[in-house]
Design a protein around this nucleic acid. Structure first.
Lengths: 190, 190
DNA sequence: AGATTTCATTCACATTTGTGAAGAAATGAT
DNA sequence: ATCATTTCTTCACAAATGTGAATGAAATCT
């Protein structure tokens, strides 16, 4: 379990005497089936994870039913920053939609890692900033693009996800009815 | 210019020997007319400001024309975090839509302030986190609410702004045509 | 393989939203 | 006060999107 994308990435990004084995002490490797949960709506979020392989779905149950908030795939972090930071109850659930392998680090271990390798904190900030900027550009798209334009952009930016994620999830993520997305797609496939 | 909302707030929030006068050294007070710019699309953003009084508009010129990205009013910070952090060209313009008074601090002075009063950095992080979380909930609203629901929520959350901001700006912010917003409003005013 | 469930498509129709034009109302300038 | 400009409203019509039901395809289970 030592030769992971994450540890190689950390070793490369973070200038320190730390070796891959040292990083590995802080993380717990987990193999999840399809439809297993990383966190459930209403629970406390006490850890962060890196996805080695697979896809997770962020969603919540609202009055209109299930709403897809986000996706994350291999090479990305699973963060529920809002509840992680405030140690508040999570407003959303995160679950796998494929067999998925993750490396988990608890809040406490993360603090230790920060202390042992302060540069990690810089990396963490960059990850959070990236999430922030993505959120801003998602606002822009939801505000200014039509459903069909949103789909085209999503498909261009995430060609793999279009293959791996059920369409009604993508529809929900784009804020559109599944039937409408089907109608939209018909115009681009000939 | 010493008795400002900002300096009282800093004095209250930040435990230190710093007095109001000490904070004042770092900020430059500016009085802006209506329609003056804090930053223009395509320029470098080298400062942050606190609004003592007035309202600013975040907007950009896109292919569909002018698009309103955000508002900020007295008691809030003017930040263009994306370009501020990366020292990149600003993708948006920020201008006043009322006579407005602000307290400006440059990037360099902010670093100095961080060094002299480290707790300021915590405050800064909280401000950025707040912007992040607002962005997430704006995503949620744009994704899941209809135009009329978005307007109702906006009006509930910002009753003052509804009075002070032209409606076609609000329409653009909500991602709706001004005529549609007018139609929506008709149903709630009797 | 067969049965069951889940997912995607299609259709008809309702509702929402966009668009361009016209005029009313409000605001600002002289 | 008068005029000019900006903002808001209204209308008729077009386009986009939602909804519920029906069908078929694909995936999953046993």
């Amino acid at each position: 379990m030592i030769e992971t994308t994450l540890f190689n990435l950390l070793k490369k990004e973070i200038p320190s005497e730390f070796e891959i084995e040292d990083f590995a002490r802080f993380f717990q490797y987990k193999k999840l089936e399809k439809d297993e949960y990383f966190i459930r709506q209403g629970e406390l979020c006490r850890s962060v994870a890196f996805i080695e392989k697979g896809i997770v779905l962020y969603y919540k149950i609202a009055d209109i039913g299930q709403v897809i908030c986000d996706f994350a795939k291999e090479g990305e972090w699973i963060t529920q920053y809002e509840s992680f930071v405030n140690q508040d109850l999570s407003p959303i659930s995160i679950k796998t939609i494929e067999p998925t392998e993750i490396l988990v680090i608890s809040f406490d271990k993360l603090q230790q890692l920060y202390e042992e390798v302060p540069t990690v904190m810089l990396l963490a900030r960059k990850i959070i900033e990236k999430a922030f900027f993505s959120s801003l550009s998602r606002n822009d798209e939801l505000q200014n693009l039509r459903a069909n334009e949103r789909y085209i952009k999503f498909a261009q930016d995430n060609p793999e996800l279009v293959q791996r994620i059920p369409q009604y999830y993508i529809a929900s993520y784009l804020g559109v009815a599944p039937q409408s997305l089907s109608r939209i797609r018909k115009k681009f496939i000939y």
